[in-house]
Amino acid sequence: MTEERLGVGMVGYAFMGRVHSQAWRSVAAFFDLPVKPSMTAVCGRSAADVKLAADRFGWASVETDWRRLIERDDVQIIDICTPGDSHAEIAIAALEAGKHVLCEKPLANTVAEASAMASAAAASTAKSMVAFNYRRVPAVALARKLVAEGRLGTIRHVRAQYLQDWIVDPEFPLVWRLRKELAGSGALGDIGAHIIDTAQFISGQLLTGVSGLTETFIKDRPGGEVTVDDAALFFGRMDGGAVASFEATRFATGRKNSLRIELNGSDGSLSFDFEAMNELWVSEGDAGFTRILVTEPEHPYVGAWWPPGHGLGYEHTFTHEIRDFLEAIGTGAEPSPSFADGLRVQRVLEAVEASAADGCYKEIP
């Protein structure tokens, strides 16, 4: 029997393009899939640079216009790894052409763009998913399982932080992530979106309202004015009765990629830090916390990889993400998180920005 293969066309080849390429290369080698991917083409504006990327990362051909990529008959999946200002245009065109779409987070730069993308996804027969990869950390997936099974009881507190330090140096240049017209927002959208999605995913609850503040510590850098936030803090209520607090900053000196989540429930608590990504700390009843090394074959995703105790890394979360996307395409299931989920996160981001601007609590539509 001939196995079904789907051609993948990826737009963008920088940081996210590199890690997505690694995932597309490895996914079929470790997971049994209903459909398998072919790395058909990568797209970028510079013909010379995109050719180098294709040769290094394993793509069969190149394009310099994403419209041409979508038109190709040998491409059935479009993977969007570009800055947020181009997500909506590319995704909507791809969905209207009947292509499956995987789009990096945050889904868009504005609620209006995200809403248009969600509407296009709802109207299309093709599958679409937003790439919140931290859902696919085995310890995070296990945390979700424990909450869904009721092991923590009623969730009362959700605490989430995402702490980085890569722009602490005032001489760090004005890259695209520091320009609002390209990135939409700063730490809030770049890493705050991740903790919003991860907190809602693990808890099974959605934010219904927020109060927040933002700050830009270094307003001018080599290359021009910084037009996004450097840090965002906010608290809110969730639809299951929990209260929640969030902190996203790229000025936490010494913290490299510390995505932290803690949930406190009536019957127990759990705690996770991505800088120790193979560990989940769980407390049940009135006992202290116990460390679970999430490397056993029965843990989510882990059985496809290495023997117990051989930890996984950042790149594996993207392989898991693409595995789940291909599984949904092959079986006809709805991928998660959907574009509608991405829109929901975008509404939270907009509410935080609005609250920071006028100092008022904002309900989330």
Results as ranks from 00 to 15, higher is better:
Thr198Trp: 06
Asp358Gly: 11
Arg72Leu: 14
Ile292Cys: 05
Ile155Asn: 03
Ala41Tyr: 05
Ser258Tyr: 11
Ala183Val: 01
Arg56Asn: 11
Arg250Asp: 11
Ile191His: 05
Lys256Phe: 12
Ala23Gln: 03
Phe325His: 01
Leu69Asp: 01
Ala242Gln: 05
Pro300Gly: 11
Thr40Ala: 14
Ala118Cys: 07
Phe246Pro: 02
Ala160Asp: 09
Arg347Tyr: 07
Glu3Gln: 12
Tyr301Arg: 05
Met1Gly: 13
Leu280Asp: 04
Leu174Ile: 08
Gly359Asn: 04
Glu3Cys: 07
Val75Asn: 02
Thr154Tyr: 03
Glu327Gln: 11
Lys51Val: 10
Ala114Asp: 00
Gly84Asp: 00
Gly288Ile: 10
Ala131Asp: 11
Ala120Gly: 10
Ala53Ile: 01
Pro37Ala: 12
Leu326Ile: 12
Val226Cys: 09
Val210Met: 01
Thr249Ala: 09
Ile261Asp: 01
Phe31Cys: 08
Trp59Gly: 05
Gly189Glu: 00
Phe132Met: 14
Phe339Arg: 03
Ala242Ile: 07
Trp66Pro: 05
Ile191Asp: 00
Met129Gly: 06
Phe57Val: 02
Lys180Gln: 14
Glu298Arg: 14
Gly268Thr: 04
Glu171Arg: 15
Phe132Ala: 05
Glu225Asn: 06
Lys180Ser: 13
Gln161Lys: 13
Ile322His: 03
Ala97Asp: 02
Ser266Glu: 08
Gly223Leu: 13
Val158Met: 06
Pro337Asn: 07
Val345Tyr: 06
Asp169Met: 08
Arg344Glu: 00
Arg179Lys: 15
Trp66Thr: 04
Thr319Asn: 00
Tyr361Pro: 01
Asp220Lys: 14
Ile218Ser: 08
Arg159Pro: 03
Trp166Met: 10
Ala351Tyr: 04
Phe289Glu: 04
Leu69Val: 09
Glu334Trp: 03
Met129Asn: 08
Asp220Arg: 14
Ala41Met: 12
Thr216Glu: 01
Arg323Gln: 10
Trp305Val: 02
Ala304Lys: 04
Trp306Phe: 11
Ser355Val: 08
Thr216Leu: 02
Pro37Val: 13
Gly192Asp: 00
Leu207Ser: 04
Val294Thr: 04
Glu104Thr: 15
Leu270Thr: 09
Asp324Trp: 11
Gly236Ala: 05
Tyr134Asn: 12
Val101Ala: 05
Cys360Pro: 01
Arg67Gln: 15
Val137Cys: 12
Ala276Cys: 11
Gly236Ile: 02
Ala14Met: 12
Ala232Pro: 06
Gly192Met: 05
Gly288Glu: 04
Gly254Cys: 10
Gly212Thr: 06
Arg344Ile: 10
Ala287Gly: 09
Pro337Met: 01
Arg323Thr: 04
Phe272Gly: 01
Phe172Tyr: 15
Pro83Lys: 13
Trp59Glu: 11
Asp49Tyr: 06
Val228Lys: 07
Tyr314Gly: 00
Thr40Lys: 13
Leu163Trp: 06
Val42Lys: 09
Pro37Cys: 12
Ala328Thr: 02
Pro300Ile: 10
Val282Arg: 08
Asn133Phe: 15
Asp239Ala: 07
Ser271Pro: 01
Leu163His: 04
Leu312Tyr: 15
Ala94Val: 11
